[in-house]
């Protein structure tokens, strides 16, 4: 029965979109992430403002549904990646005593709560995150609508706090389009 009220919701969305209250900034080259680590972007990306609740930052080149580089630093025990104002909502949270497999499981479950269908980790392997021992992972899934999605990312724990980076894009054409740039970014991580 939701479609009966769909129109008024869309009016709100439209007004928000048109109000220009979200500032998209260009970013290129070295980018410091909350003073914890630095990544280096080879191409020019568009950056959304950092979300103060989730501490997540999001970059895109072609549009957030076509490529999305999401990252955060120094997430603490109990932190959730899901944007919500509902403090009572039960959600996947990070725990500082998580193993690498559990960290990746936490990211996968967060993607699932965030709307990715059939989110599946296809590979985990050790890979340096700057000077830290990190875990590199690949993920696949789909939008609810059925568009296949691919992703790759890296995570590491420093003094009990979590750093993570994840890139997702439609499997058809867009994941491959910036794959080289993304791999370069993941290799460029330096701790600060």
């Amino acid at each position: 029965m939701i479609f009966f009220i769909r129109k008024s919701l869309l009016t709100v969305l439209l007004l928000v979109a048109m109000s220009g209250c979200v500032g998209l900034m260009p970013v290129k080259g070295p980018l410091d992430v909350d003073g914890a680590y630095r990544i280096t972007l080879g191409e020019t990306w568009s950056a959304y403002p950092r979300d103060s609740r989730t501490k997540l930052r999001n970059l895109t080149i072609d549009g957030e549904a076509l490529n999305s580089l999401t990252f955060a630093a120094s997430l603490e025990d109990g932190h959730t990646l899901i944007r919500t104002y509902d403090r009572q909502r039960l959600l996947p949270v990070y725990r500082s005593d998580m193993s690498q497999t559990e960290v990746v499981e936490f990211i996968r479950d967060s993607l699932s709560v965030g709307g990715m269908a059939d989110a599946t980790i296809t590979s985990l392997r050790p890979e340096p995150f700057g000077a830290l021992e990190g875990v590199r992972f690949d993920v696949k899934g789909a939008t609810q609508r059925g568009l296949n999605m691919s992703g790759t990312g890296k995570a590491a724990i420093e003094d009990g706090k979590l750093h993570l980076i994840i890139y997702t894009a439609p499997t058809e054409y867009y994941f491959g389009l910036h794959e080289y740039e993304v791999n370069e970014i993941l290799a460029s991580i330096e701790l600060l």
Partner: peptide
């Protein structure tokens, strides 16, 4: 069209 241009597509 709705005016939230992407700087990366300028």
């Amino acid at each position: 069209f709705m005016g939230q241009p992407l700087p990366s597509k300028r």
